[in-house]
Write a protein that binds this DNA or RNA. Sequence first.
DNA 1: GTTGGTATTGACATTCATTCTCACTAAGCG
DNA 2: CGCTTAGTGAGAATGAATGTCAATACCAAC
Lengths: 132, 132
Amino acid sequence: MQRMTRQRAAVVDALTNVDEFRSAQQLHELLRAGGNSIGLATVYRTLQTLADGGELDVLRTQDGESLYRRCRRREHHHHLVCRQCSRTVEIDGPSVEAWASQVGADHGFTDIEHTVELFGTCEACRAGDTSR
Amino acid sequence: MQRMTRQRAAVVDALTNVDEFRSAQQLHELLRAGGNSIGLATVYRTLQTLADGGELDVLRTQDGESLYRRCRRREHHHHLVCRQCSRTVEIDGPSVEAWASQVGADHGFTDIEHTVELFGTCEACRAGDTSR
DNA sequence: GTTGGTATTGACATTCATTCTCACTAAGCG
DNA sequence: CGCTTAGTGAGAATGAATGTCAATACCAAC
């Protein structure tokens, strides 16, 4: 059975107030800064649970960190993420899905899963390039 | 300046004798088992160097481990990997490249990089399903 | 409103891949 | 053959993520 706790509510709330992909640690800090007392392990667990339930999208950065985000669209889609500020655009690859399973079948593979993510530098970050 | 050491040669050799994506640790064991004395840190460093030079393809598994493979084709391509035995097929996404940069441009993003990987279960692994 | 079973929490320890440190070794030029 | 310096390796360090387990607090039932 799933219980609604103060902590879980806080995590969900934080996620709805943020539009970019954020790491568990970042969210933990955010919550603490916002006056919420919550343990890091709890943040991890909650994100895990939400992600399993399809409430959240997970993304792994090039250096292996997991980033989480509550997406508008619940159906399967992909992301275009700014590698500096994490600004995110939801996109769909019209033919990607079909292509993926086709290629898989062609080579005798089943249960095809695919990972398609785009990274780039967004307009705002390109302008303020002097930072960092 | 780049020197050719016994260890570096051994790593390159091991990679040419393996057709699947392998982790640094697996390669380290392989080398040791093959009678090569080599440190784990060296394996990591060598793989890193080779990957930077485009000699190697790197892939991150869902649980964040890096896998390395020497691919036939040096041009940009993608992979279809068996999630059980790591058997790998090199594939190319004809329109993927174009689509990626188009989508990026549409949203004002530049320097678009894309990650496209397919995972599935290969024919052999589906047969011997009783394992694991 | 009170109670009780149990899902959930959190401080801390632990795991595990990867990177760092730094004294030591050896590649390879002259 | 010597010397410079890239490369090595054992062990320590890092850092994200997960496990532990006693204490806590949902919430359904009384």
